[in-house]
Design a protein around this nucleic acid. Structure first.
Lengths: 194, 194, 194, 194
DNA sequence: TAATAACCGAGACGGTACGTCGCGTCTTAGG
DNA sequence: CCTAAGACGCGACGTACCGTCTCGGTTATTA
């Protein structure tokens, strides 16, 4: 028994046009060219409609990321730690290329300017990504596939740190090779291999 | 016999006032509040003077960082790899706190918006920091203190990745404990310890 | 056997609330602050309801004026021209003070902006007021109390002109003294007194 | 020895373009269509430049009126009261037609909305016009051309009242006939003619 | 000692985006 | 058929910065 409030319902058309406009603007003009005004123009929407639902361009971009990327690196566990970790890292790395990379770097940049957005980005998106990997490590620890005394949180930060650094500092290619190198290092730390 | 061009020389007073204004604005209002206009106002300087010497606020901030932080983690090598690495990491981590942290995150954010600045920041500041650590690893390898097949570049990225991720994602404290945890992990990877 | 159209009848509650909101808004915020949006808010009424019955804020204000001021200077004729004129002028002047003054000036201002409203205001309210005075003069002329060749229309315009000028230009007090001075001047022109 | 302040001087080009844009907009779209935005567009000028010098469209229109109409009814006195009054009235009436009429009604309307502008309009333009006629009457009184006990201020208000009422209420034509009818009435009141 | 040159402050200029307000229209649920 | 609620495209508001452009003045070197 859903209760419907009166009044004209929110336009899904407008919402999609706004998200699409934001992402296409990032691609074409870079994040510096993404403005509320520009999104409104391209989406054929009034500024008021945008401000009614989002406080900033970053919030729009974040929603676009979440909408289009719910499938990024969904955790698939077989129970074989090495295999699961390798798959997770590959998905995470490969999923952070191209358009998604532009969204990600834009959001991280904006989080440094806007404390309100920073809070939602860090506690939302970033924490969630860490939690996924953390869960994988926890299961491996439970099944005795990790050596004693492994600091799971540190492994998580090493992985995401390296990935984000590649994105933000453009210090090298983001490809399968990079993913596997990272995986190997993580395995050394997690399993005590040499 | 220094060659002096004719005309009024550049005012050091103005230069210092501008750098000071930029850093104090970052502290007080966050990076979003740092504008050419605001810097000119606070420094008691005309906008023309600023534009004559810097193309953007980020360039000013970068110069302020370099000016005030030339002493950050100058490499001090004793030849004992473990010790030298630990000292380097500690200096790097401790040096990236407080006001310096605000400068760093602001610059990394701006590099995502402004491709011109990005080029100078990545190839200048970031590459230089990596080179310092890289040198330390190279010396250790030369003296046989690293196991064979160690990927020095990967170690560098793991370290700076984790440090920058802490800065940008505010995922945890930036302190000596964090530095030593990182050092331990790096040693495992570099020396094959378990 | 009154014919009633089907459907929900018009809400008198809403109508009164709208008129009251409009007049109170003029008093509190001046005519510039009277908007359809603001009236709806204050009256607790939807905008649609207002637009269904009135085309503009001015139309609402005009209705409020007519509703609350039907008793302004109703012509009372005793047959004594001087007395009747004096009474009419006094009523007209005194009746154009306070809240009514604010309504009147607002309407005259709006008539300069909105040609549609101007037509109804000029041919309705303004012409009607002139007609009342004109009737008084016609009766006096019929009974031989005006000298020959008097231009009744000019007298009407001199009176309303002076009154409106006081209202719009705030060139002096609007009181009984002003009314009687005007009356005396009109009598000179109408009766040939000196 | 004029002291010049430093900085770029005000652009006369921009000033003229703004005044011209404002008057042409009034002609073409009516006063309701005169906005800061529209003036800026038509004048090819930034909004900031307008706001730097004028607080409202009405202030621009007032300046345009003063600039273009300094020659309106400049008092020309021969000493012959009847003649001088007739000329003054004719000039005042004929000068208040066409484009000037649109400026005048727009300004009077705006004075009802904006108390700040009202003050400058009433104490500036309107009071000045009254003062001119007042001076004419004073000189006539000094030379014994007015009967005793004439209330000069009342005559002034009767004249300007009638003129403004014609403008605002569109109650009749604004032409030489109207001017002379008014003059005749004023002479009756001033000289005691019959 | 003058001329020349590069700097400095002040501040106006044409622009673009900001975030808000009101417009008049529309689409709901409900009396 | 009316009402309230409220979202919609639209356009103006007044402000903040952008980067550029004159101005009047101030130090320097060079002739």
């Amino acid at each position: 028994m859903t209760v419907r409030s009166p009044g004209r319902p929110r336009s899904e058309t407008a919402r999609h046009a706004i998200l699409a406009a934001a992402t296409s603007l990032i691609d074409e003009e870079g994040y510096g060219g993404v403005t509320m005004e520009g999104i409104a123009r391209r989406a054929g929407v009034s500024k008021q409609t945008i401000y009614r639902w989002w406080p900033s361009p970053a919030a729009i971009v974040l929603e676009a990321l979440n909408a289009g990327a719910s499938r990024i690196a969904p955790l698939v566990e077989t129970g074989d730690f090495e295999h699961d970790l390798r798959v997770f890292v590959r998905h995470s790395v490969i999923g952070a290329r191209g358009k998604v990379a532009r969204l990600l770097t834009a959001l991280m940049a904006e989080a440094q300017r806007d404390p309100v957005f920073a809070e939602s980005f860090r506690n939302g998106f970033l924490a969630q990504r860490r939690a996924v990997m953390r869960q994988l490590l926890d299961h491996a620890k439970s099944s005795g596939q990790l050596r004693d005394g492994v600091d799971a949180d540190l492994l998580v930060e090493l992985f995401f740190g390296a990935l984000w650094y590649r994105l933000l500092a453009a210090s090298g290619p983001i490809n399968r090779r990079f993913a596997d190198d990272l995986t190997d290092a993580l395995l050394v730390l997690a399993e005590g291999r040499s």
